[in-house]
Simulated assay, not measured.
Amino acid sequence: MAFKNPTRAEIRDILKRSKRIAVVGLSTNPEKTSYMVSEAMQKAGYEIIPVNPHADEILGVKAVRSLTEIEGHVDIVNVFRRSEFLPEVAREAAKIKPDVFWAQLGLVSEEAYEICQANGITCIMDRCIKVEHALTARD
């Protein structure tokens, strides 16, 4: 099954209805892309849940060690880990049943896509959530 992103219209709808974003690989370093993107999304009104086993708090929010520690529904799992780690993160995401698995710009894994498909999770890869949100805001 070949990977294909949802259409821009579908991505716009996802971002409009989503509220909670778990960010896997969110750095404590304000100069890292994961921090800047997550901070922008937080300022745009999204609840950011940092997933980082090496941090206690990021962006003023208590960090969790893994996705399975999150209480309540997660709309989007946004991943800032190298492509070779995407299948592992997708398997963990499948345990919490988010609506969307989102791998940031430059990240693609056919195996992660297949895991998402098998678990009814929409998969977006090689797209920046901040850029997509900015495009949505213009609509």
Rank of each mutant, 00 (worst) to 15 (best):
S27I: 08
P30I: 03
H133Y: 10
E57K: 10
K43Y: 02
Q42I: 01
R8G: 13
E84S: 05
E31T: 15
E92L: 12
A63P: 02
I121Y: 01
E39Y: 00
C123N: 03
N5D: 08
Y35S: 00
V74C: 02
T136S: 12
I70A: 10
L86A: 13
A63F: 14
G45M: 11
T122K: 14
T33Y: 13
E111C: 13
A93K: 02
V100K: 15
P6S: 12
L59C: 02
I11V: 13
K32V: 09
K43D: 14
A22R: 06
N52P: 05
K130W: 01
E69R: 11
C128F: 00
D13I: 04
P98W: 06
T68C: 12
T136I: 00
C128L: 04
L107S: 01
L15K: 10
Y35D: 08
E111R: 08
N78H: 13
R65N: 08
V131M: 11
A40D: 06
E88R: 02
R81T: 06
E92M: 04
D99P: 00
K32L: 10
I14G: 01
V23N: 06
P6I: 07
M36I: 13
W102D: 04
R81K: 13
Q117R: 15
A55I: 05
I11D: 02
K97Y: 05
E84K: 12
T122L: 07
T136D: 08
W102H: 09
K95G: 02
E92I: 04
R65C: 07
L135M: 14
H73R: 15
K130E: 12
P6V: 11
E39D: 06
G60Q: 09
R127Q: 02
K130G: 01
R8T: 15
K62C: 03
R8F: 02
V77E: 05
E39A: 13
K62W: 03
P6L: 14
